[in-house]
């Protein structure tokens, strides 16, 4: 699975989010690559899942890729439960 974290510049917030998502991926033992990018190139990134700040919800509307938004980038519990929910719905 390819996970992409995105933000406006693709360099600050998304990088921090990527680190915390990576922690969660490791903790859950998922087979996933986590990368970060800016929001404008995210659409054609080929990712299976995108994580972004809630702030970007509107900008991410209409994406074919599933999108998870988080409000607190530093809260791994929030990130973890949202990824778990996603996986459950996906049936894995």
């Amino acid at each position: 699975m390819k996970i992409l974290t995105v933000c406006g510049a693709g360099q600050g917030s998304s990088l921090i989010l990527k680190m915390n998502v990576q922690d969660v991926v490791d903790e859950l033992g998922l087979d996933a690559d986590v990368d970060n990018d800016n929001i404008s190139t995210a659409r054609n990134s080929g990712a299976d899942l995108i994580l972004a700040g809630e702030f970007h919800e509107d900008a991410l509307e209409g994406f074919e890729v599933p999108v998870i938004t988080v409000s607190d980038f530093m809260d791994n519990q929030e990130i973890k439960s949202k990824i778990q929910n996603f996986l459950e719905k996906k049936g894995e």
Partner: peptide
Amino acid sequence: EMVKDKGAYIVITPGLALPHARP
């Protein structure tokens, strides 16, 4: 400009902002 243009998403966690621009 980044905040004006892309919004206040730089407030990454309650009470804390992380302003930055492209290199």
